[in-house]
Simulated assay, not measured.
Amino acid sequence: MDYVLRQAAPDDAEAVVLMHTAAHEESYGHLLSPAFFAERRRSIPERVARRRPYLDVPHPRILAIDSGGGIVGLADAGPPRQEDAPCALELYSIFVLARAQGSGLGRALMAAALGESPAYLWVLEENTRAQAFYRRQGFAFDGGRGHLPPEWEGVPELRMVRGQPAA
């Protein structure tokens, strides 16, 4: 299957939120409660409104579009959200719908969002499939630990870093 990668735009907000919602259900269905997903679906209109300005920035907000024009993947990156970040670039998220997984699309999205730059990311502690993908892309755990906010049920997460500068 062929995909086109492009920078997202504010007009993509609804399609991005719908794809993100589906990806969360596919990826985290075993980690979060049914009530969490019901709330995510209920909040789609508000999330679309919040997503529009988020997509109107120069930072990588990369979409993967399939031959039918649907969004099947996304990756976004930018400046660190934490003051004690291990490097100057954070991969905020990367998702590929199940039907496109195993195609090399995740690797292509990551390359488009990060290039070869040193970067870090947060991954759910129990998401071993994502952790394996990140290890194949040169990321390693650096000991950073955290928890998602209460609205995400406080799920534990771990930090991974690629190309960390020597101290």
Rank of each mutant, 00 (worst) to 15 (best):
residue 34 P to M: 02
residue 65 I to S: 05
residue 59 H to I: 06
residue 64 A to S: 01
residue 42 R to S: 11
residue 45 P to L: 01
residue 71 I to N: 04
residue 74 L to H: 04
residue 61 R to Y: 13
residue 58 P to L: 15
residue 65 I to M: 06
residue 62 I to D: 07
residue 35 A to I: 03
residue 70 G to K: 11
residue 54 Y to V: 13
residue 75 A to W: 14
residue 56 D to V: 15
residue 55 L to C: 12
residue 73 G to C: 05
residue 48 V to P: 15
residue 42 R to C: 04
residue 75 A to S: 13
residue 69 G to Y: 10
residue 60 P to G: 08
residue 57 V to G: 09
residue 72 V to L: 09
residue 64 A to D: 06
residue 69 G to F: 07
residue 38 A to H: 01
residue 50 R to D: 14
residue 51 R to G: 03
residue 62 I to S: 08
residue 34 P to N: 00
residue 40 R to L: 13
residue 68 G to K: 10
residue 48 V to L: 08
residue 65 I to Y: 03
residue 46 E to W: 03
residue 56 D to I: 11
residue 46 E to N: 12
residue 65 I to E: 10
residue 37 F to R: 01
residue 59 H to A: 12
residue 51 R to N: 08
residue 56 D to N: 14
residue 53 P to Q: 08
residue 72 V to T: 12
residue 48 V to D: 11
residue 48 V to A: 12
residue 63 L to R: 01
residue 56 D to Q: 07
residue 71 I to Y: 12
residue 43 S to T: 15
residue 47 R to M: 11
residue 36 F to P: 03
residue 62 I to R: 09
residue 64 A to G: 03
residue 73 G to H: 02
residue 65 I to N: 01
residue 61 R to W: 11
residue 49 A to T: 09
residue 41 R to S: 05
residue 71 I to Q: 06
residue 54 Y to R: 14
residue 35 A to C: 02
residue 40 R to A: 07
residue 36 F to Y: 13
residue 65 I to H: 05
residue 65 I to P: 05
residue 47 R to L: 07
residue 50 R to V: 03
residue 52 R to P: 05
residue 50 R to G: 09
residue 50 R to C: 05
residue 50 R to F: 15
residue 47 R to Q: 07
residue 45 P to W: 03
residue 68 G to F: 15
residue 66 D to W: 14
residue 62 I to V: 13
residue 54 Y to F: 08
residue 73 G to N: 09
residue 41 R to K: 13
residue 74 L to E: 08
residue 47 R to D: 06
residue 34 P to W: 00
residue 51 R to T: 10
residue 65 I to K: 04
residue 59 H to W: 14
residue 46 E to F: 02
residue 68 G to C: 10
residue 66 D to Q: 14
residue 54 Y to W: 15
residue 57 V to P: 07
residue 65 I to C: 01
residue 70 G to H: 07
residue 38 A to L: 01
residue 65 I to W: 03
residue 67 S to M: 06
residue 47 R to Y: 06
residue 37 F to N: 02
residue 58 P to C: 09
residue 36 F to H: 03
residue 61 R to D: 11
residue 54 Y to N: 07
residue 43 S to D: 07
residue 72 V to D: 08
residue 44 I to C: 05
residue 74 L to P: 06
residue 69 G to P: 08
residue 48 V to S: 04
residue 44 I to P: 09
residue 42 R to Q: 15
